[in-house]
Design a protein around this nucleic acid. Structure first.
Lengths: 160, 160
DNA sequence: AATCCAACTGAAAACCGTTTTCATTAGATA
DNA sequence: TATCTAATGAAAACGGTTTTCAGTTGGATT
């Protein structure tokens, strides 16, 4: 829904939320992040602009952004979440399990499969989760030279 | 890998694990369950056969079964997990968010999409998560008469 | 500019699923 | 039967998230 260059602050004001300093610090991080971050990572970064910020406010702000569709929550192994800025309207993510960098894609051609499955099982299918995992080009490159590298967004656990 | 009617006890013995009463109580529940259950639900049921059983042993046994491929872990919203007996070798699940009942399916035609995405992004893609959500036939039926019904496996939270 | 109140805030505590620790128990093998 | 190690359960630790609560603040109203 939101265009690529949306002003989040404007959007949440329009939705009836107050514009506060803690909120803005979080928004600034969310609009600027290159790859998905955990709530705690967002806290660390946002405190650079507003030191007294609390984790609770990060969660509360993310909740609003989630509801407004500006942010998506990614699920990683170990019950651990990461938050990504939403670009496409029906987005899925391809996540690097080395560094956590993610690219969003929206063309998931699953209509056929979903329809067939619905016919066979009788389920009324209304949602799906799809996440792809792999190694991003940059990590592939660095893997050839170094044994390990952890950059910014890390915190990824390998799935299955 | 394991055939439909596998004897789990045999399989984990062959893998070098001891055959103990607590373990067997868990195995009996896992082989008998109709839909995915949480670790705690498995505990409750297994205690019917072996009352002193502890939650820790449930987790430890599930870990073994997971490693041997006899069980799969499903992810639900809210960082909550459910364990399902694995039937097909590359299985995904279609989960009812009313009652939690799940059907496994293995034909996920994603090779094309994965290949295209790998080409476009440069990622080396090695795994994916796919879970479908909907309402099972039985819950659809009961929805017409009752307002709500909770059966056995419940505990499902609606995704996105 | 001063007042007011609901929305908002951060700290601390509660929560909840999962894992670790540790002293004890019990299979399996000799 | 004796022995040794894997396995066990209770309790505590853990980590992410949510709730509670008393104090603060944005912004509409005066």
């Amino acid at each position: 829904m939101p265009p690529l260059t949306i002003n989040l602050a404007l959007s949440i004001n329009r939705a009836g939320y107050k514009s506060t300093a803690p909120r803005q610090a979080v928004l600034r991080v969310v609009t600027g992040m290159r790859s998905p971050l955990t709530a705690h990572q967002i806290l660390i970064r946002a405190r650079r602009g507003y030191p007294p910020l609390g984790l609770v406010t990060v969660y509360r702000t993310l909740e609003i952004l989630l509801a407004l569709g500006h942010v998506r929550r990614l699920h990683l192994e170990g019950g651990c979440h990461t938050y990504a800025a939403a670009n496409a309207s029906h987005g899925h993510y391809l996540i690097c399990f080395r560094c956590g960098a993610a690219v969003e894609f929206s063309q998931c051609r699953m209509q056929g499969m979903v329809r067939g499955l619905a016919r066979r099982t009788g389920y009324r299918i209304s949602a799906h989760w799809l996440e792809l995992f792999g190694v991003c080009p940059r990590c592939q490159r660095s893997a050839r030279t170094h044994t390990s590298q952890q950059e910014g967004a890390a915190h990824a656990h390998s799935p299955r």
